[in-house]
Design a protein around this nucleic acid. Structure first.
Lengths: 88, 88
DNA sequence: GTATAATTTAGGCATACATCTAAATATTAA
DNA sequence: TTAATATTTAGATGTATGCCTAAATTATAC
């Protein structure tokens, strides 16, 4: 659990929006891209960052790559933040 | 609640360590500094970032500035992260 | 009011990050 | 096996971040 990497990934608003989208349902890169005004390479970079942080996972289906949220990672992250300030 | 600013502040390990220290008790800048191997100006910069994010507050006592944690900000942040993926 | 102490502000430098264009890779379809 | 589609990788550029030294600020103590 690399808190640094995860928080870094979460700091970008586009990436939080991607997470929100994927929380409704898994999508391929093209479908995600329709919600943004950035180039495909930029989006790809964001997806790589999220994957690196273990916040999403990728699965190929034909020529598309489908992205899915890894809820547990975000849930554990929230918990770790709270643990920072646990009195005990 | 500027999630961007808060998450940015939380991404740095030194700043998370400061938060952890302050969760035990309020401290002045000098006392905080003893736990780190960085210069006073660098520490001051971290404290300013945390203050900007509303994660800590500052109060002058004589020639020291005492820093205290603002727990609610971190608590709300954890909640907002979970809200990102709420099925609802 | 001058020196001392605690901390911040200013300015500079190196590294990290977000974005872009162009080129490469992977998969299907003709 | 050539063309088309979906997506990534490579390389470049501007901005943000973290650290440093030096100077400024704020408050107490001689």
């Amino acid at each position: 659990m690399y808190l640094n990497e995860i928080l870094g990934a979460l700091t970008d608003p586009s990436r939080r929006k991607i997470i929100k989208l994927l929380s409704k349902k898994s999508l391929n890169a093209g479908q995600i891209g329709k919600h943004f005004d950035i180039t495909a390479p930029s989006l790809s970079h964001h997806l790589a960052t999220l994957r690196q942080a273990d916040l999403v996972e990728q699965e190929r289906q034909g020529r598309q790559l489908i992205y899915s949220l890894k809820r547990q990672t975000l849930e554990k992250t929230a918990e770790q933040l709270l643990n920072l300030i646990k009195t005990k």
